[in-house]
Design a protein around this nucleic acid. Structure first.
Lengths: 244, 244
DNA sequence: ACCATATTTGTACTATCGTCCAAATATTCA
DNA sequence: TGAATATTTGGACGATAGTACAAATATGGT
């Protein structure tokens, strides 16, 4: 991790942490979601939390354990929120409105988690985005056993609103949605740059509206011809590791 | 990086590398694009290339220098290919067909680069995806001075085909496209998993078609109301570091 | 106030990191 | 061929990594 000059000899006596475990979790979440898991050391986290490196080991045993606990904290609330919103969306009468409500139910909790109000959902989603790129073993297990159910529920709901589109296409389009969502959280300033200041990539509200609008349109697109002609045989690709 | 048991005492005498520099580059590209920059050590690369760690330093001075050289190798050919395809796409008469051709011109070179036939473009794009998540300083500079021009050219071309849609919306939707593209290359097996085997996430040809179809529809969607009501003031989000 | 327990501290251990360097070896060209 | 140059080698350096552990300190119930 990039370090500041940092020659402070003073100990962090000013602020006494009432709950060091929580402070460590918060610091780790912030640092991981900003620099990635590999680039942040246990010592970085301890320093940011005003704690001793040994305390991290005491509370979470290993660095992976710390990451695991962060996921544990957020997965429950976020998926619960998603289920609630999805259930409400399913009850929308108008088909077009229902589809939009479903997409919104998927996107919204990614920006505002139930566990933390001030951008907590955003931070955790950004962490998930980075972890999906870095590819951690601990995360892989959690993803498969926690998020796949939710993903299937959303795909099924979408399929109900768009029964004429094969599930396969909806899986692809839902996948694209997640990729767009991740990339927006990881690289928001690119939007500001390319729009020459006329858009703010970090404006969560605006990002959500753009994402929902674009996704609904993409989902409604005509399906690919089932008799795929496959005009040129493109070579398959796959990374050498098992991924998220 | 995850290491195999690896207790081979035999030296790599069997295969003599005619050009060690190229072998190192190839190994680094493969490893970086699979495990990320931070997770791969210079020694990992040297071993994969059948070289001595010192050789890496000799040819590329630093680890960052090695990454830089990989980008140098690919950026030129890829953007040249994109320009060619974009120029051809601009000449398409039918507006709908032209839009699709433009999107295809953006997506295709990301899968098949001019420099390497066997998935070289895919590998490099996956690397870019991972680097955008990890956030490397060297990459940041290259991105801004190499890819932004191309991005603007594509946005402009799209805007010509869809003049009634504000540029801002097109920037967002182009951003979503890149995110979807990256995510598909980084996590293709998720598509296979969620589709329960009815789709192959690693099938580049299929991925391209799905991506083009979804993106064209998203681009054509009605723009967001310019008088954005901003119903709830969502808090801004931004990572603590400057990003790609 | 006392004890049992929970937590924090400081330090140490081993492994691996990126980079460096002098010696050994290949290669190139007059 | 022989000299000049380019490359490879193996080992070393200091820095930092994750983790472990005993001693010190804080905490809570009686």
């Amino acid at each position: 991790m990039v370090r500041k000059p940092a020659k402070s000899n003073v100990k962090a006596v000013s602020t006494r942490k009432p709950n060091m475990r929580e402070a460590i979790l918060a610091a780790a979440e912030e640092l991981f979601s900003t620099y990635g898991f590999n680039a942040v050391s246990v010592r970085d986290i301890a320093q940011a939390a005003g704690a001793n490196p040994g305390s991290v080991t005491y509370h979470f045993k290993t660095k992976d354990g710390l990451l695991l606990e962060i996921y544990r904290r957020h997965c429950g609330p976020m998926n619960r929120r998603r289920s609630e919103l999805l259930a409400a969306a399913r009850r929308v009468r108008d088909l077009q409105d229902r589809l939009e409500a479903i997409v919104r139910a998927y996107v919204l909790p990614a920006f505002t988690s139930g566990s933390d109000l001030a951008g907590g959902g955003t931070r955790f989603t950004r962490l998930r985005a980075i972890m999906s790129a870095e590819g951690n073993e601990v995360v892989r297990k959690i993803i498969a056993q926690t998020f796949d159910d939710t993903s299937h529920a959303f795909i099924d709901a979408i399929h109900e609103s768009l029964p004429h589109i094969p599930r396969t296409d909806l899986v692809w389009r839902g996948h694209f949605l997640l990729g767009a969502l991740y990339y927006t959280l990881v690289t928001p300033e690119r939007v500001s740059r390319l729009s020459r200041g006329s858009a703010d990539g970090t404006d969560a509200g605006h990002a959500i509206e753009e994402l929902v609008r674009a996704t609904v349109a993409a989902l409604q697109a005509a399906p690919l011809d089932p008799a795929t002609p496959a005009p040129r045989k493109a070579p398959g690709f796959a990374p050498g590791r098992a991924l998220t």
